[in-house]
Amino acid sequence: MRSDGLSADVEYDRPSAARVYDYYLGGSHNFAVDREMARAAIAMWPELPQIMQANRAFLRRAVEFLVGQGITQFLDIGSGIPTVGNVHEVAQAAEPDARVVYVDIDPVAVAHSREILAGDERTAVVHADFLDVDAVLGSAEVARLLDLSQPVGVLLVALLHFVPVDADPAAAVARYRDTMAAGSYLVVSHATQEGQPRRADEHQALYRRTSTPMTMRSRAEVAALFTGFDLVAPGVVFLPQWRPDRDEVVDDRPERFTGLAAVGRKN
């Protein structure tokens, strides 16, 4: 994918992380290549669908938490294929005026999102690279829907493990942070090798086949992304451990859900 988006060659002959994710969630917004890869991953790691569902559930809980903190505008970067449990659905269920801007680099995910969200005046979709902070924050959609002088929820859910070390994701996060008003929230979930290092390596190798290879990070590395934020309790934890719903039974082996989750408030 060229960063300027100037390629007529929209890739569906290679698996896409967004469509593979959709498959894990039980959707059919995917192609044979995506399913083939998803099945290979599941064969290696049977809990993967559960992990992805846990991630989606974390997203829901985090959005609900943010709405509870008074956040009514969201910037969801790396939003992927909007299947079920989208941010605007969750947010607007609690706060009908909530506004959401989705951002993704995958042109197919963006086109699909636009189709689904057509007619919803409170949502918009931007085709941009997370790393191109100016393109994201300078987009007409952000200008139209978000008031960055007010607190905003920035969601980087299951995104940053697709940003390699060389691209310096922490620097990009810092640039978003610097434009966020005090009282804003950063939501991150991130694949980690902690708990299951061997499987994690194999999984990373598998994702090298996609246009979005994977870089897993440790708890400390994830925590470091929150420089300038106060981590909300319980801090950086495995996905199901982050503020589980009342009467929800947290899995007795949460490390099987090899994703870390955290929410921070800009101070």
Binding site: R19, I81, P107, V108, A111, E115
Partner: peptide, 11 residues
């Protein structure tokens, strides 16, 4: 159909 149309649109 949706994803197919999305590909088309993207293209």
């Amino acid at each position: 159909e949706e994803i197919g149309r999305a590909v088309l649109l993207a293209r």
